[in-house]
């Protein structure tokens, strides 16, 4: 685990919470959480943090313990997989980490020496959704021609060019032929295609003051040993200021939180 990322330190932790929330509370609650319809102090968020804490705050699970997780840069954190003796056996990260792994360990062959699997289910009663980011294309000038071009970029044909030219991002169009992708990226694409549901990265959807501010800090503080409710109350305070809707009242709050 490595949470250091210069000015962005802490963000790898948000991905953990997102994956756990999707698996323990489900995509609908995940959406309510993103929209701040339920508060951060909700029992389901508290549970997600605690579940994460059982792993991240356990020195026997994490290389270097919490102090290691906070000190190590996220790009270097998977390297423990490949040392002798290994520093870690599993690594949780988005698919882009492949680039960094191969840069630091040029002799490794993807799929043969290292491979990828979807974050496992937690609640057996629920399906296993996938979370991720993506390239978003925006339109500054609304003309017929520009619209046509956007449609083309999203089409099978447009995305096929993207893939054939060496773009390693999993294409979102279901019909793109994956033979030009490297084996690991094509595996990731299969995972994306077969996922029960897809949700966009929650922290990227939240207002910056929360999603790329308070949430990051919260992850650092929580891994560093802060009390779960202290962390969540602070997040809720930041959210109430950042969301124009103010306090969270639209969703059904599950009691037993903070």
């Amino acid at each position: 685990m490595g949470f250091e990322s210069g000015g962005g330190s802490g963000w790898p932790g948000t991905d953990w919470i997102e994956d756990i929330m999707l698996r323990t509370a489900g995509p609908e609650v995940y959406d309510q959480w993103v929209a701040h319809d339920i508060p951060w102090t909700d029992a389901r968020l508290k549970y997600a943090f605690e579940l994460f804490g059982q792993i991240a705050r356990n020195p026997t699970y994490v290389l270097g313990g919490p102090e290691g997780a906070l000190s190590i840069n996220f790009r270097d954190s998977p390297n423990g997989l490949f040392t002798e003796p290994p520093g870690c056996l599993l690594h949780h990260q988005a698919s882009f980490i492949q680039t960094f792994i191969q840069k630091a360990n040029p002799n490794l062959v993807p799929v043969v020496d290292f491979n990828v699997f979807l974050f496992p289910p937690i609640d057996p009663a629920r399906e296993n959704p996938l979370s991720g980011g993506g390239s978003i294309i925006g339109l500054f000038k609304d003309t017929e021609m520009n619209r046509k071009f956007m449609e083309y970029l999203a089409s099978r044909e447009g995305q096929q060019i993207w893939v054939n030219e060496g773009g390693q991002e999993p294409p979102t169009n279901q019909n793109v032929n994956l033979s030009a992708l490297d084996p690991l990226s094509s595996r990731v694409t299969e995972l994306l295609r077969s996922a029960a549901a897809f949700r966009f990265d929650a922290s990227d959807l939240m207002p910056a003051a929360v999603g790329s501010g308070a949430f990051w800090t919260a992850m650092l503080n929580y891994v560093g040993g802060a009390d779960v409710c202290t962390v969540l109350l602070k997040l809720e305070e930041a959210a109430e200021q950042a969301y124009t809707s103010g306090a969270a009242t639209n969703g059904v709050i599950e009691p037993g939180g903070c």
Partner: peptide, 10 residues
């Protein structure tokens, strides 16, 4: 340089 610190970690 600050950008490099963010981009190159260790």
């Amino acid at each position: 340089l600050v950008g490099l610190v963010g981009a190159y970690g260790q």
